[in-house]
Design a binder for these strands. Structure first.
Length: 657
DNA sequence: GCACCAGCTAGTCCAGACTC
DNA sequence: GAGTCTGGACTAGCTGGTGC
């Protein structure tokens, strides 16, 4: 349990009919005190659980076996049978009583935790230290009467109100949409929900050459031979895709991970600029792209690198952690010459790290990796759009702006998406300057299509809950329409037809195949549009991806506007097809690509604002207008008044992916 | 009628675990 | 490297109860 807002403490306890265990104070050793599988095994399972079960068995009497239930916390190790907790339980002959995910009401211990929290809230003198909190929780645990616990187990609240949980799931009819074929180079492949590059390793269009390869090691590596091997493999791999690399500049920057974010960001900015200037002096041309190899996985360093590369220098960048380097080198077969590799395709790209890096490198150099082989279902001359908003979260200035991002394509079939972004009022989900961003996107589309505007816009809005559908319809849709009117020189009626869908991933609807004893995920392409849908809403669930672990979550798509007059079937198939155009991986995404890209763009925007989120700039910025945030040197842009923060060099690139 | 509080819901971000 | 799922912590906003 965790008592939020004051002193965080963690406990383990067990209850049963006629039984209440001692309460054990436990401590997480993971990041920020997170409780890990190792902690659970060492602090709970090994020292206590057998005694608890034996004591409970004694209470139950002969012939009855205690049932042990855990919730779905990943530290309990339920996802595989080979982790340390599962292995230990198996070796001890302990079996688990099933507990449905996201169902705290199904577990009586949750009500005990709630009782303790409520009792602590009622105390006149609140604990002010961890020791006081531990003592207080133990006192409240002791006060819980066994009769009350027995009552929880006998009769749960929803039974008392006449509600019962059905023994069976609700049966719904679904349909399976076909996997679209994808095209790499000149080859068309019949795809599964995930595929690889072994049999079609040429990209659709090649990006530029990687001139002046600059490798920057951030931090100290004990094993330099490892990086040399990794780079040799990478160069060899890229040659296979006909992406030549010239130049070879390897440099190192000392990390400043423990310093405050302002000093740290300034340090990296100076160091990287020196490297850039040095390469320019020697090679007489600008570096095309930077490859950063990070000794440690550190989100703050990553944020500083991306801020410098995107906002200051305007150069594409790729970050690889030392873990990935080790993984890649360890798995890669011994390098052979290209002819041998061509003759022996099965040895190519057997390590996903090199393959994924090749994907990133090609599209960051301006290439296009693949496209759908047949028709996507998207209407002719359509601009695909994705939009999302992210908020500052805890720890930041209460007035810290939220960040809105929009991505768009220049055609309906190729997966290249470029972006616009804005700062906006704190914790505002509604996109305040959607009109301005849509105008930018339409102008870009026009510039790429011989001055023609799209006939249709297919707009996917991410991260909006059911209570906010009205906001999207009444406040965001009119902005999109206004942008269309403006770019058509005020012409009324507009000729650009808008179809707008809200995409939701965080809902509690799950689908399972009927008649299977062991639960397993349905195949990718599952579409459900009846039974569980509201009567007067044009919406559907679509599980576009194949989930290898856990219970697959379907995307929930709600149609807010349909000026392009898509039929339900066509919109479902189109949306499913659009899950296959993501450039970063060789797999169908769980939500359609424009929405996913908008989500990724917002993650990148958070990198730029990281010093504010870390609280370092609050003295300068607290409760200041958005313009002050926008113009501050070390965050959004460089204080030169740009609306989107990144360097104009990147306006035509999918640099944020 | 107003202020305050607690409880609840729904949302976000994050860490951890896992697979390809 | 990519992707996924899950639970925990935290927050905002709404609702209903209580006291003045």
């Amino acid at each position: 349990m965790h008592r939020g807002g004051t002193i965080p403490v963690h406990f383990f306890g067990a209850v049963g009919y006629g039984y209440k265990s001692p309460l054990i104070n436990i401590h997480g050793t993971g990041k920020s005190g997170a409780f890990t599988q190792t902690d659970y095994l060492a602090q709970v399972l090994k020292p206590y659980i057998q005694d608890f079960l034996a004591a409970f068995a004694a209470v139950l009497g002969p012939g009855k076996t205690p049932q042990f239930m855990e919730d779905g916390n990943s530290a309990h190790g339920h996802k595989t049978t080979s982790n340390i907790c599962a292995t230990w339980r198996t070796s001890m002959g302990i079996t688990l009583f099933p507990h449905p995910a996201v169902s705290p009401d199904m577990n009586p211990i949750e009500k005990c935790w709630r009782r303790i929290k409520q009792a602590l809230h009622r105390r006149l003198r609140q604990p002010t230290t961890e020791v006081q909190m531990v003592v207080a929780v133990l006192e409240e645990w002791d006060k819980i009467p066994q009769e009350w616990i027995n009552g929880l187990i006998e009769q749960q609240d929803f039974w008392a109100f006449g509600l019962k949980v059905a023994n069976d799931f609700l049966a719904v009819k679904g349909k399976t949409l076909r996997y679209p074929d994808v095209r790499y180079g000149s080859q068309t492949q019949n795809t599964d929900p995930s595929w690889n590059l072994k049999s079609h390793p040429k990209f659709l269009t090649k990006g530029g050459d990687w001139q002046n390869l600059v490798v920057v090691e951030v931090g100290s590596f004990t094993e330099h031979g490892l990086i040399r091997t990794f780079l040799a493999h990478l160069v060899s791999e890229l040659a296979f895709y006909e992406i030549p690399i010239s130049g070879d500049f390897k440099l190192r920057v000392d990390p400043l991970v423990d310093r405050d974010s302002v000093v740290r960001r300034a340090h990296y900015s100076v160091a990287f600029q020196e490297i850039f200037d040095d390469v320019l002096r020697q090679a007489h041309t600008n570096p095309v792209m930077f490859l950063f190899i990070l000794a440690d996985k550190d989100a703050t360093v990553y944020a500083d690198i991306k801020w410098w590369a995107d906002c200051i220098r305007g150069v594409p960048s790729i970050c690889v952690t030392s873990t990935a380097v080790q993984k890649a080198v360890g798995k890669r077969p011994k390098p052979t010459d290209r002819d041998l590799r061509l003759a022996n395709n099965k040895n190519i790209l057997d390590c996903k790290v090199y393959g994924n890096l090749a994907l990133k490198i090609n599209f960051k150099l301006g290439g296009v990796n693949h496209r759908l082989a047949g028709t996507s279902g998207v209407k002719l001359n359509t601009m695909l759009v994705g939009a999302d908003v992210t908020h500052s979260g805890k720890g930041a200035d209460p007035g810290c702006p939220s960040l809105a991002g929009v991505v768009s394509s220049c055609s309906s079939s190729i997966g290249k998406f470029v972006a616009s972004a804005r700062l906006q009022s704190n914790n505002t989900e509604y996109i305040e300057d959607l009109e301005g961003m849509m105008l930018e996107r339409l102008q870009w589309y026009q510039s790429k299509n011989e001055n023609k505007l799209p006939d249709h816009i297919l707009f996917y809005r991410d991260g909006v809950s059911e209570s906010q559908y009205g906001m999207v319809r009444d406040e965001e849709l009119p902005q999109i329409q206004e942008a269309c009117r403006k770019i058509q020189a005020g012409r009324t009626p507009r000729s650009i037809q808008i179809t707008l869908l809200v995409v939701g991933k965080r809902h509690h609807t799950r689908f399972f195949p009927k008649g299977r004893e062991s639960p397993e995920n349905l195949k990718a392409g599952l579409c459900v549009e009846t039974e569980v849908m509201p009567l007067h809403q044009f919406s559907f669930y679509l599980q576009s991806h194949q989930s290898a672990l856990g219970t697959a979550r379907s995307g929930h798509y709600v149609v807010i506007e349909n000026e392009s007059r898509y039929t339900a079937t066509l919109l479902q198939e189109t949306t499913n097809n659009l899950c296959y155009i993501g450039s970063r991986a060789t797999a169908a995404l769980s939500i359609c690509t424009p929405a996913r890209y908008a989500d990724i763009l917002c993650d990148r925007l958070r990198c730029y604002m990281r010093p504010v989120f870390e609280g370092e700039l609050l003295n300068f910025l607290k409760n200041n207008p958005i313009a002050d945030y926008r113009d501050k040197n070390l965050i959004w842009g460089t204080g030169n008044g740009r609306v989107s923060p990144w360097h104009p060099n990147l306006n035509d690139r999918s640099f944020y992916l």
